[in-house]
Structures are given as structure tokens and as C-alpha cells.
Design a protein around this nucleic acid. Structure first.
Length: 110
DNA sequence: ACGCTGACGTAAC
DNA sequence: AGTTACGCCAGCG
């Protein structure tokens, strides 16, 4: 149930994240034009539980830390999903995060 | 109805 | 250079 365009926009971008890539809340927020609302982006992910097809595990904070893994059904699910896509996660942190980082404002470049 | 909190990030001190 | 405070939007107490 989408109640606001902001949430919808976030979901749209997250769904566009390529397989084996990750992005950050701030990147999505910046792409939407409101970089200060990065917090709300994370909150939108919380609402993504109701919407299938939202790879919330591919969205981490700007440090590449899996800060939101505890919000999944199982805390290990996020890490497992990332590893299955070829992303190495160590100590709740993505290895080579800057290399795997997928910036919508650059990749989509619109 | 009012206020606090929360998967973050940036600015200011 | 490290720490503290604030902004953002929506959900919940």
C-alpha cells in the first residue's frame, strides 16, 4: 500500500538496483532530491516488507554496514542474500563497498 | 491530539 | 579531527 510518493519513489529506485550491486539510503535520497531525508528512505524500506520485489538487502548505509539486517525476518537473511549475489560481507560490513556501490544519480544519470 | 522514535546523513562546534 | 545537534517523513504510544 503506497501512501506517499516518496515511498513509491524509493521503491522504484531500489527495484532498479542491479544484481550483485548495492546502494545507500543517502544515495537514493539524493537521487530523489532530498538528501536530508535519508532517514525516511530507511523507513521506507521498513514498509517494503509489504511489497515483494524490493531488495532491501541491497540497501545499506553510507559506510556499507548492514545496519538494517536486524529488521529482516532473520538477521542473517540479509547477509546470506548478499553473499549469494557474490557480495562479501564481513563483520556486518560489505567488502569493496565502493566498488559494488551503485549510485542511481550516476548509473541512471538522468 | 501531541510528541517520540527510527534501516541515515550533513552541518556545525 | 572527533563529537553533538538537527533535518527529513511517517508510524506508533
Amino acid at each position: 500500500m503506497i501512501t506517499s510518493v516518496f515511498f513509491d519513489s524509493v521503491f522504484q529506485v531500489v527495484k532498479l538496483i542491479p544484481h550483485g550491486r548495492v546502494t545507500s539510503y543517502g544515495a537514493v535520497a539524493s537521487y530523489l532530491g532530498t538528501k536530508k531525508s535519508s532517514r525516511t528512505v530507511g523507513y521506507a524500506m521498513n514498509a517494503s516488507h509489504s511489497i515483494p520485489g524490493i531488495p532491501a538487502h541491497r540497501v545499506v548505509n553510507r559506510n556499507g554496514q548492514l545496519t538494517g539486517k536486524m529488521h529482516f525476518a532473520n538477521p542473517t537473511e540479509m547477509e546470506e542474500s548478499l553473499r549469494k549475489e557474490g557480495i562479501i560481507v564481513e563483520n556486518d560490513q560489505i567488502v569493496d563497498f565502493k566498488t559494488l556501490f551503485w549510485d542511481p544519480s550516476i548509473e541512471l544519470a538522468i
